[in-house]
Amino acid sequence: MKISIQNLQLKYGDFVAIENLNLDIGDGEALVLLGQSGCGKTSTMRCLAGLEEPSAGRIIIDDVVVFDSERGINLPPNKRNVGMVFQSYAVWPHMTVFQNVAYSLNLQKLSKNEVKERVTEVLTMVGLEKFADRGASLLSGGQMQRVALARSLVMRPSVLMLDEPLSNLDARLRDRLRVELREIQLRLGLTCVYVTHDQHEAFALADRIALLQGGKIVQIGGPREMYETPASASIAHFLGVSNVMDCEAVAGGDGSSSATVAGHDFTVHSSQRIPSGTRQMKVCMRAEDLQISAQPKTAANAWKGKVMVAGFQGNDVRYAVELDSGLELDALGTIKRGEQHDVGDSVWVTIEPGQVQILPAEVLA
C-alpha cells in the first residue's frame, strides 16, 4: 500500500517536532526513518498510525485520506489498517502465546476456526508454532518480540510500522531478527515503516532510508547511496565515519580537492569535487578505508605515526594512531590481511584520494 505524507507539521506549543515533512512511500517498500533521539522519527510514525494528531498537513494511505488538517479529517487508528510493533513488547503475561496473538481477532468476533487458522499461520511465520500454549511470562525477550510482531501481522495490515522493536535485545539476537524481519517483509510484500537510531539496522532493513535532523528530512536514498555519498559531515559522522575534522578546503583545477586540517600541519588530498558555495567544510575518512603498514609509503596521502591504542575485535583491530603532526586518526585493520600492530609501533597510514570526502558541516536548509 502506498503512503503519501504532505507538508506534515507537528508542534507542541512553541516546539516544532516535525516541520513541513513531505514523503512518498511505495507499495511494498521498506522505508526506515533514521536519526538521533528527538529528531522527529517516532513522532512521524505516530502521526501515520493515528496516535498523534498533526498540527497541519495531509496523510494518504492506499488512496484514502486518513488525515487532512484543512478538511478536518482525522481517522482513528482502528480505521487506518496499520499494524504497530513497539519497543516495549506489551505482551500480556497472564495469557499464552496463542491467546496474546488471537486477542484482537476475538474482539472482531471472528469464528474459532478462522482465529485458529490465522494465528497458527503467523506463529509459523515468526517461528513460534511450537510455543503456542506456553505462558507469555516464560518467554525470552526475543520470543516476546516475535509475539508482538505476530500480533500485528495477524490483523493483516496494509502497512506495518515498527518503532525500534529490537533495541532491548542482545547484539547476536538483534542481528538474527533483522534478517528474519526483512525476510517476512519481502515474503508478504508489506509496506513497512521502521524507526531506528541504529545505522546498521537501517542498512540491513531498508529499501530507502530517510534521515531526519531537527524534524526535517535532510537526506533520503538507498542504503548504499547513503553510505557512500552522505550529504554533510554531520550525516557522515552519524552513519559511522569516525574521522571528521574541521578543515580549510581548496578546489583543484581537475575536479580534485585538498584540505588542511585546522590546527595541524596535515593536508589530505581528495579526488572528489568540493560542493559549491562558501560553507564550513569538514574532511571525512572512514576508519576501514585507512591502511596501516610498518613499511614506509609514498603516496598522495601517506603519514607517519605511532600506534597509541590497539583494540582487538575478533577479525578486526581498532587502532588509534597519533601522526607526527599531532593529529590522531581512528583506523580499522583486518588481521587476515596481516594488519596487526602493537601499541608503540611506528606505522604509516595511507588512504586513497577517492575515499576522502570533503563535505559541508551541515545540509543547508
Rank of each mutant, 00 (worst) to 15 (best):
W348T: 09
V91D: 00
L364M: 15
L211H: 03
P157I: 10
C47F: 08
D316S: 12
V309C: 07
R71P: 06
H269L: 15
Q6W: 01
D24K: 06
M155D: 08
G354W: 06
V363P: 07
N22E: 06
T278F: 09
C47I: 00
N168I: 10
T298G: 03
E362A: 09
R224D: 14
L21D: 00
I59N: 07
G221S: 14
R134W: 04
K306P: 00
Q340Y: 12
D330M: 14
A30C: 14
H94L: 01
I292R: 00
A300I: 09
T350V: 13
L139A: 08
K216M: 09
G135L: 13
L177T: 07
D14C: 10
K336M: 12
F86P: 00
R182M: 06
V97W: 03
A30R: 10
V82K: 09
K109P: 00
V321I: 10
F15S: 14
F131S: 11
A204V: 04
N22L: 02
D63A: 10
I209H: 04
R71D: 13
A171S: 11
D133I: 04
V356P: 01
I235R: 00
L149G: 06
E19M: 03
L211A: 07
D316P: 02
P76A: 08
K216D: 05
F266L: 09
Y89A: 00
A49F: 10
L8V: 05
N20A: 09
T191S: 07
I235C: 01
A171C: 02
L160F: 10
G354E: 14
A90R: 01
Q9M: 12
R318Y: 13
L327D: 10
I184W: 11
R224E: 14
D170Q: 04
G38Y: 00
G35A: 11
P54Y: 08
F238Y: 11
L290K: 02
P76R: 11
S257T: 03
R279D: 13
A236P: 08
F131A: 12
E201I: 05
F266G: 07
V154G: 02
R273W: 02
E201V: 04
E352R: 15
T350E: 03
A259E: 01
D133G: 15
D63G: 01
E53Q: 15
S104P: 06
G38F: 08
R46K: 11
I358E: 01
K109Y: 06
R118P: 02
A249W: 04
Y103W: 13
N7H: 13
Q280I: 13
R318E: 15
S152Y: 07
H200N: 15
Y89W: 13
A299P: 03
